[in-house]
Design a protein around this nucleic acid. Sequence first.
DNA 1: TGAATACATTCATAAACCTGAATATAGCAT
DNA 2: ATGCTATATTCAGGTTTATGAATGTATTCA
Lengths: 120, 120
Amino acid sequence: MYSGDPVNKYTKHAALLKVMGHPVRLHILDMLRRGETCVCHIERLLGKRQAYISQQLMVLRDAGLVESRKDGLQVFYSLVDEQAAEVLDLLYGAHDSSGLEILEGCTCPACSTVLIAEIG
Amino acid sequence: MYSGDPVNKYTKHAALLKVMGHPVRLHILDMLRRGETCVCHIERLLGKRQAYISQQLMVLRDAGLVESRKDGLQVFYSLVDEQAAEVLDLLYGAHDSSGLEILEGCTCPACSTVLIAEIG
DNA sequence: TGAATACATTCATAAACCTGAATATAGCAT
DNA sequence: ATGCTATATTCAGGTTTATGAATGTATTCA
């Protein structure tokens, strides 16, 4: 790509846009705007196989757009690239950090804690 | 891509970002923000072969990001996608529509007209 | 320790993309 | 008509990407 050229601003930004230019990855990134999210949550929301989600998360991680944190069995991902966040804001409106959507049947802490609280 | 899924917003936006996610195309799009530009101008500024520039312009055209207008021997391209323009503004600062940069040795009307005027 | 859970990685193949070379077309000038 | 100029398209190769299948790893729980 841009063979033999020094790394210019276009090369750098193009790489960002290219990584974002994939429907599953874009969907994941949009989710992550609401806050740190575990893989099981992403898996349920997108309805894709776990391995596939994990592959896409790896692409995002390798590109430096997201970071992961391990907590027990779960791994939580968060969005760390400022420009990616800005592009998402542009496409999907201002940042919504109102916390995760609760999913039925999702066993992750975020979801089950709330269910327990509700059933109480 | 996102096989079998209905076309959702992520698919649509991902397509936009993917097309923009290429250094030469991104550079071209950035140029076009200054105004309608002929191919010879783009060619000189990027220092790439004509055929290659033309191929990338075709990609941009097929994706609906740019449109072309023929005038004599020249073909002029302009940026017509609003969201693409917004992304460019985000990355490279607000829109600069101050007209084309004049290039020495460029024979297109934009350049030669000015030269003639200056030499007068 | 062994089993279950949550996630990651590797591998393989088909599809898509990149890009150079060659060739085609369309308009203008003579 | 002929040739020149500006641009477009086609073709072919190599490389990358997409994605499913299989497998690996780490942590918790019993």
